[in-house]
Design a protein around this nucleic acid. Structure first.
Length: 584
DNA sequence: GCCGTTTTCGGCCCGACTGTTTTCAGTCG
């Protein structure tokens, strides 16, 4: 069975299909919902479901109970689930080809597949072209267009947007929105505000007493190319860059409710609403009302900001990055939300490249930029020269040359910034470090990384990572999962072993801030943090602009519940050198 | 089908928008 069928998103999809099948068959709506809840929960889980299954921990996923767990067990053992096949048996198979596209839910997918007898997207496009869809009862010209668009959009725009891209699009647009007359606040919403590594949609919340005027002037902004829809409460537009953006508009008195609601996550909100109900309150995106005997009564209780809203529930405000219903609500009730690390806590960084390897700037330019950014220390960590291509003597010579260069920079800039001399060192496919120990120890520190042979089996990759962590001259593990968002899956690793070894050896794990990496991912950060492992937040900068990515690495740490105590480079230079075991 | 500070039964978040209707169904977030 290929591994793609076993990914969390593939399993989530499977459960959604079962949910859809149940819905068509008129099954109990709560059962329909239960399958959807389980699917959402699995999609957002921080561990691979297959790993949890191997460890007998499927029931730790909220929404997965005895029944679904036993179905999943069958799926992992045999590659299919007889009960699921039975449920889907009498339904037109074509419906699952369209189901889940934007605007096409279970009922629509079923009607299209059954009435038009189409089996795949191509046949549906054909039926659309012949005007067959518009003639179906309950369908018209508009729905025909929507379905065609949904089919075509999926073709061009597969997948999600990298966080830093969504962030910059939203940042610029929010500036424009804030300048519109009548706007008192504007904020990112959804996965963007929670700083999830990839973002589905760019949503922005806007506070104003004049929703109509604001929506109207928003749709006329110069950066807007097309208006998809606009009402009193929201508007959807396509920007000239091709990005879709939705805004949600609301009055300032209950803006906190809107902000909270659309920041999500969905599971965080559902949990919060249950607590609200138990306290005689009812939440919606429009505000908070009293709730008694199943009835909502009275006027909205003012919630201008989120603090007010969480206070009504007798809990601490939860930072957006933690709102995933993974324990933050219970922590907030006990006033135990940690003080999360911030960008300003980062004192220096030691994963940087220069023209000595694949960077675009000289070490001097990189150092000067770090000074102007207020960093207290930097470490130059070019890819180590290869002993294979240069020979031992050649590699040694190159290392010493670079070392002297750093020494010269110290003389020049040492009063303004502390400079460390390091390297990023590969481990080869045979789990051997690219340089022997007597060359590694010429560096003051090294970061060990995997840069080749990503497709090896789990036990081999794990062995290579352990070789990195167990080497006395390696100080940190670089971009631990090797994932490239939207390009390459993470390699398979036995994290239990890796974390145990990192802990035993006192080695830091990198949180790489590079937009397509964001690696270690937040879910694994949280697990490692609970084992008292320290992290090194790096930009892995190859050019000056990359220094700006630091905030995204910090966001990953925040989503992993890290305080500044968990981040080794939040320490002052001397303390950092001690804890990171920099060799003098 | 899931779940538990109303715990093994009896509940399960809530409202807008769209397109099609003429009072609502489906979908989305």
């Amino acid at each position: 069975m290929e591994s793609t069928k076993l990914s969390n998103s593939a399993i989530a999809r499977l459960l959604r299909e079962v949910s859809a099948a149940y819905e068509i068959k008129g099954e109990n709506q709560f059962k329909v919902r239960a399958y959807n809840t389980a699917a959402n929960s699995i999609e957002h889980a921080t561990s691979e479901l297959k790993d949890l299954w191997e460890e007998g921990r499927l029931d730790e996923i909220p929404g997965v109970g005895e029944s679904i767990a036993s179905h999943l067990d069958e799926y992992f053992r045999t590659g299919k689930v007889k009960h699921f096949d039975d449920v889907k048996k009498n339904l037109p198979p074509g419906m699952f080809a369209f189901f889940g596209l934007e605007g096409i839910g279970p009922k629509t997918a079923f009607k299209l597949a059954k009435e038009l007898k189409v089996k795949d997207k191509e046949e549906l496009l054909g039926a659309l072209a012949k005007g067959k869809v518009a003639k179906l009862p309950g369908f018209g010209k508009k729905s025909e267009d929507l379905i065609r668009q949904a089919l075509e959009r999926r073709k061009v725009e597969e997948g999600r947007i990298l966080l830093p891209i969504a962030f910059s699009v939203a940042e610029k647009l929010i500036e424009e929105i804030k300048r519109l007359p009548g706007v008192t606040r504007a904020d990112p919403l959804g996965s963007l505000r929670r700083m999830v590594s990839t973002v589905g949609d760019i949503d922005i919340g806007v506070a104003t007493d004049n929703p109509k005027e604001v929506v109207s002037s928003f749709t006329k902004l110069p950066s807007v190319s097309r208006v998809l829809g606009a009402g009193e409460a929201k508007a959807s537009v396509v920007l000239k860059t091709g990005r879709q953006v939705d805004i949600r508009v609301h009055n300032p008195k209950s803006y906190g409710a809107l902000l909270q609601y659309f920041t999500g996550s969905k599971s965080h909100n559902i949990h919060l609403r249950k607590i609200a109900n138990s306290k005689g309150l009812s939440f919606s995106e429009y505000g908070v009302k009293k709730y008694k005997g199943g009835k909502i009564i009275g006027d909205y209780i003012p919630t201008e900001n989120e603090e007010a809203l969480y206070k009504l529930l007798d809990m601490q405000i939860v930072p957006p990055e933690l709102r995933e219903d993974t324990g933050e609500i219970e922590a907030a009730q006990k006033r135990k939300i940690p003080y999360l690390v911030g960008v300003d806590d980062i004192q220096g960084e030691v994963h940087l490249h220069t023209t000595n390897s694949d960077g675009e700037e000289t070490a001097e330019v990189m150092v000067k930029e770090a000074i102007s950014l207020g960093r207290e220390y930097v470490g130059i960590s070019d890819h180590a020269p290869s002993a294979k291509t240069r020979g031992m003597a050649g590699a040694r010579q190159e290392i010493l040359k670079r070392k002297k260069e750093v020494g010269d920079l110290r003389k020049k800039y040492g009063s303004k910034i502390k400079i460390f001399f390091g390297a990023e060192v590969n481990v080869d496919s045979q789990a051997k470090m690219a340089l022997p120990d007597d060359l590694l120890k010429l560096y003051e520190y090294t970061i060990g990384s995997i840069h080749t042979a990503f497709n090896q089996p789990k036990d081999v990759i794990t062995k290579r990572i352990l070789a990195i962590l167990e080497n006395p001259y390696v100080n940190a593990l670089g971009h631990p999962t090797g994932r490239l968002l939207g390009e390459r899956e993470a390699y398979e690793v036995d994290w239990e072993k890796v974390f145990a070894t990192a802990q035993k050896e006192g080695k830091a794990l990198e949180i790489n801030s590079y937009p397509s990496r964001l690696d270690l991912p937040d879910g694994l950060v949280k697990i490692a943090k609970d084992k008292n492992i320290k992290f090194l937040i790096s930009t892995d900068a190859h050019r000056l602009a990359h220094y700006q990515n630091l905030k995204f690495g910090v966001a990953v740490a925040r989503r992993g519940w890290c305080s500044k105590e968990d981040i080794v480079n939040s320490l002052k230079p001397e303390e950092f050198a001690k804890v990171f075991k920099v060799r003098g």
